[in-house]
Design a binder for these strands. Structure first.
Lengths: 208, 208, 208, 208
DNA sequence: AATGAATGAGTGTTCATTCAT
DNA sequence: CATGAATGAACACTCATTCAT
């Protein structure tokens, strides 16, 4: 039973998260100050420390939900009843769009050192999601190839597929265009890239 | 005939450059402080200002020579008398190797805002090199396709080719493995990626 | 109803103002550092930035109120129902006393570059006050002359009158005597100076 | 017998003095850096320390000769065979011109604390010159009055005379006009001021 | 005599964070 | 729960000065 106080508290926390999300996305983690977040959230900067141990923690708490949302969206798309290649395309475009919409998160997502098992949970969590995404795409790539490949071949293809996805996002990571502008302008190119890779994979795997 | 003093001076300058290179590479331009560089270089932070006007200048002096070296190497490789595809492969691997060997430079190289024609020269210089590399690779991609393509098709192929190269480098940008380790381990994958792209390009361009 | 916290805050602000006033007065604006002011005020140097945007703002906030007080006092004195010459004397002595009581302000007041109409407001404000004072004294000098003079003559007389006032203040600007000591000791001299100037003006204007 | 080395040494010292004089005059003592002086003088900044203990010493060594030159000029002018009032005028204008031509020196000249007998010599020296000038002007004022006055009256007149001179200089101390421009534009006003003071003195002293 | 190399102290300013209320 | 007050550490950069040659 949430008292009125608890409700208000939750509201404050949310407004902080929302403000921080927006500012981090637009201006990058380092540039944004706690005071700016507080001003945007409509509270004192000291209040933030009631809810979050420090700036870094705030960032990490911020990054989990969207990543989970991405996972869910990718799952949903991959369960649709369409051809494998179409599904891969849809999921890939969703991934690209998400990454461009959350550019600051993206660098966090990508740069967290892999494997450091001894670290605290938030990094591990992110690591886990990253591996999940990799595995998911790997399966979809396989399904789209329409031919049998060895594990080794699949790993190689998935890696190459990832390189390109990562490269796409990295190319526009610091662009000043909005996600919408970028997606409008470049979706055909992205589609083409996927198509090129798949047909290249097929050719290459066939030969061996 | 360099006096002993001049020698020592040169050493100091080099140790600053080395320290800065390393720190920029590991921790990014913004995060590194002049005092850290000085400590790493074994001198006072004010000494840095004897050799470099300011932090930005230090960064730029650091980045130009290797980029020029890369250009020269790419030129040399592209003039060899081998098949187009082999040349493209050699040049691309050289590009990847260089970028991984100079990871800090890479993010500098990639992130400099494009086009700002009104800016001062150093950024322009980098911009110019970037465009040169793009043009060079574009030409080599065309030669490797072994079939006629429209300008539009070529632009799209080059873009996709770049995405993948960029993605490869970005993927290992923060890895703790040395360049040598990475190249040893992954050169086959990189070759494969190039081969996949080329055969994908050919398939895709043929169709239309 | 001021809370205890607000009270303390006000105290801090005042101690900063007091410290700054004193140090600026004794050692000049440029020479004084924010850290010195803080030490004198008994707080951290960063605390100053809570109350004042920057060093310049601190200086300006310091200077406006006393100048406005001076204006008001001069206005009040000039509206009294006494002989013109007595009023001029009273106003002039008030001006001298004020300037000696606020020596740091004085150099600020005097040194602000004239006329720069394109500058931000605070300098303009001071400029305006200075012009007001000049105009006010000019009118009173004219009234005290008891004879008709051309505009040109009046301008010259006012300038000379100002030179002497300015010279009086400048002479004792760096004296270690308090205002009270100086006024006690020198008021007769100052009166005499005014009287000398007026009779000199009359003689000189008569001739032409 | 000056060796060639001694000659060169003297030259260097002089070029430092010349450079410093110019820079101090144009930009003020605090703003000028040792490196700037060195560059202007055509030597290394370390060389300055061979000839002058530190920046302050340089300033003081710089200030004595012109002051002595002023003294000599004032003496020469006061020994001419013209009417007393003309001599006073000539000497006063020379004083004003000198002070405006050496503005940075002027503040040094004026601000040196009076009387501090325990201080080192350079300050005393300046003090002495200041007193000399005061005495000299005092005598000339007396001669120009053309009537007998008590010591007390003379002191008062001299003080007032000084206030005005000082005020004139202080008024234009921070002006951006050159000495020449100022003297061209304002010499009539200065003459008038002197004339006003003298006739005021006469009137006032007559009465008592 | 002269200099290039080097440095410590210091500049104004910002920021994440803590404390007292 | 929430906040204004306060702070120490840090930033890039400058300067007068000293040291070794």
């Amino acid at each position: 039973m949430a008292t009125r106080q608890e409700q208000r508290s939750e509201e404050t926390k949310n407004s902080i998260l929302t403000a921080a999300r927006q500012l981090f996305a637009n201006r990058g983690y380092d540039t944004v100050t706690m005071r700016e977040i507080a001003k945007e959230a409509g509270c004192s900067h000291t209040t933030i420390y009631i809810y979050f141990k420090d700036k870094e923690t705030l960032l990490q708490q911020l990054s989990m939900p969207p990543l989970q949302a991405l996972m869910e969206r990718m799952d949903a798309l991959s369960e649709q009843k369409t051809a494998s290649e179409e599904k891969l395309e849809a999921v890939s475009l969703a991934f690209i769009e998400f990454c461009l919409a959350n550019r600051s998160m993206y660098s966090l997502f990508v740069n967290v050192k892999a494997g450091r098992v001894d670290e605290q949970s938030p990094q591990l969590e992110i690591n886990k999601i990253r591996n999940d995404i990799f595995a998911k795409l790997s399966r979809m790539v396989q399904a789209s190839l329409l031919l049998a490949v060895t594990d080794e071949q699949l790993l190689m293809c998935t890696r190459i597929y990832f390189y390109t996805l990562h490269g796409i996002v990295a190319t526009y990571e610091h662009s000043e265009e909005t996600v919408e502008m970028l997606m409008d302008r470049l979706t055909p190119t992205f589609r083409q890239a996927i198509s090129v890779l798949l047909s290249g994979f097929r050719e290459t795997c066939k030969e061996t």
